[in-house]
C-alpha cells in the first residue's frame, strides 16, 4: 500500500481553457445527433448491446476474407512455409477465421460522456497559497484507465475530480499510448477532414479516430458521424464493407433514419437479404415507425423491403426501380 501511495505524480497545469482541448479554436466537425447525447427518445448504448441488433450488424458487415487479409500497407517480409496435412490445413483456416472475427469486432457505440467533476472537499484555508492548479494522478499498475483516481486542487482550495479532458491529458502523459497524440490532430478538423473524406480515405479516418479518442468522446462521435454521412452521400459503402466500422455506420443510419442510399446500394448489388436485415434493424431502433406495423416475423425479405419503400423511403422512385431490376434479374436467372 505504501508503494501505491508513493507512486503518485505531481504536475502543474495551465489554466483550464488551455489545458482542456489544447487549442481553444478547435471544435468537433459536426453537431451531435440528440440520440447520441441523451436517452430521451432512445438508448443507443443498450440498442448496440442488444443481441438481435448485433446479429443484424454482423450480417450486414459480411466477412470477405480477401478483404480482411488483403495486402497491408507495411514493410514486406520474407514468406515462411509449413508442411501440413489436410487436418492441419483445416485448423489453420479455422484459426485465420477466428482472427478475421477478431478484426471485425465493432468499436462500441456510446453516448457523449457527461461531465465528471464532482467536488470532493473545500479547503478555504488553502486559498491563494498557489497560483496554479495541481493535478494528482495515481499511476500504480492494474487500475483501468476509466476508473483511475485523478483529482485536481484548485487555487481557491477546492479539491475535485479531474474533468474528462484533464484525465485524457494526464493518462497520455503518464501512461502513454503510442498511437494516440496528446493534441487532437488537425486532420479531424475542417477543412482538412472534408478534404481527406473527398479522397475516399474513410477507413484511415475511422481507424485513426478509434486510436485517438475514447468511444464516448464528443470528438469521436462527431468525426465518425461526419464520415458516415460522407460515405452515405457518396454511396461508398463498399469501401467499408467487411470492416469493423460497417456495423456502427448501419446503426447510425438507422438511428437518424437516413438509410435510403444504403438500401439502394444493397438492392443494386443484389443483397436483398441484407436490405431486409437493415429494415429489421430500423424497426428495432424505431419500433413506432409506420412500416414496423406492416410486417411481422413471418414476413419475407421482399415484404420488408417493400414496406420500407412504401412507408419510409424518401427516394421512392429510385428504390422501386432498383427492386424492379432485382426482380427481373432473379426471374431471368430462374427462367
Amino acid at each position: 500500500m505504501a508503494g501505491r501511495a508513493c507512486a503518485r505524480g505531481l504536475f502543474g497545469l495551465r489554466p483550464l481553457h488551455n489545458a482542456s482541448r489544447n487549442m481553444s479554436t478547435l471544435s468537433p466537425p459536426k453537431k451531435l445527433d440528440p440520440n447520441y447525447v441523451s436517452t430521451e427518445s432512445m438508448d443507443v448504448e443498450r440498442l448496440f448491446l442488444h443481441a438481435d441488433v448485433r446479429k443484424i450488424l454482423k450480417k450486414l458487415t459480411g466477412m470477405d476474407l480477401n478483404r480482411i487479409f488483403a495486402l497491408r500497407k507495411q514493410e514486406n517480409s520474407v514468406p515462411s512455409y509449413k508442411l501440413m496435412t489436410d487436418e492441419e490445413l483445416k485448423q489453420a483456416y479455422a484459426k485465420a477465421l477466428k482472427r478475421a472475427e477478431f478484426t471485425l469486432r465493432m468499436p462500441p457505440v456510446m453516448r457523449k460522456r457527461v461531465p465528471c467533476e464532482a467536488i470532493i472537499r473545500k479547503d478555504p484555508g488553502m486559498q491563494g497559497a498557489e497560483k496554479h492548479k495541481f493535478v494528482f494522478t495515481d499511476i500504480s499498475y492494474g487500475i483501468p484507465d476509466r476508473s483511475r483516481p485523478i483529482v485536481v486542487r484548485e487555487p481557491n482550495g477546492v479539491l475535485r475530480n479531474a474533468s474528462w479532458e484533464e484525465r485524457d491529458q494526464m493518462l497520455q502523459t503518464y501512461l502513454t499510448r503510442p498511437e494516440r497524440e496528446s493534441r487532437t490532430p488537425p486532420m479531424f478538423t475542417e477543412p482538412h477532414l472534408t478534404r481527406i473524406l473527398d479522397k475516399g480515405w474513410y477507413i484511415f479516418v475511422l481507424d485513426r479516430a478509434c486510436a485517438q479518442f475514447e468511444p464516448d468522446d464528443e470528438w469521436f462521435i462527431a468525426v465518425t458521424h461526419r464520415t458516415y454521412d460522407h460515405i452515405s452521400e457518396k454511396s461508398a459503402f463498399d469501401v467499408v464493407r467487411s470492416t469493423r466500422h460497417f456495423g456502427p455506420m448501419c446503426l447510425y443510419l438507422a438511428v437518424v433514419k437516413n438509410g435510403d442510399k444504403l438500401m439502394l446500394e444493397l438492392l443494386t448489388t443484389n443483397r436483398l437479404e441484407d436490405a431486409a436485415a437493415f429494415v429489421r434493424l430500423l424497426h428495432l431502433v424505431h419500433p413506432e415507425s409506420r412500416s414496423a406495423g406492416e410486417v411481422d416475423e413471418k414476413s419475407s425479405a421482399m415484404d420488408f423491403v417493400e414496406a420500407y419503400i412504401k412507408l419510409e423511403a424518401q427516394m421512392k422512385a429510385k428504390l422501386d426501380l432498383a427492386l424492379q431490376s432485382y426482380n427481373d434479374q432473379v426471374q431471368a436467372a430462374t427462367a
Partner: peptide
C-alpha cells in the same frame, strides 16, 4: 501441402 504464411497478408 506446402503452405505459405506472410505477415503483410495477416
Amino acid at each position: 501441402h506446402v503452405v505459405e504464411f506472410r505477415e503483410e497478408y495477416g
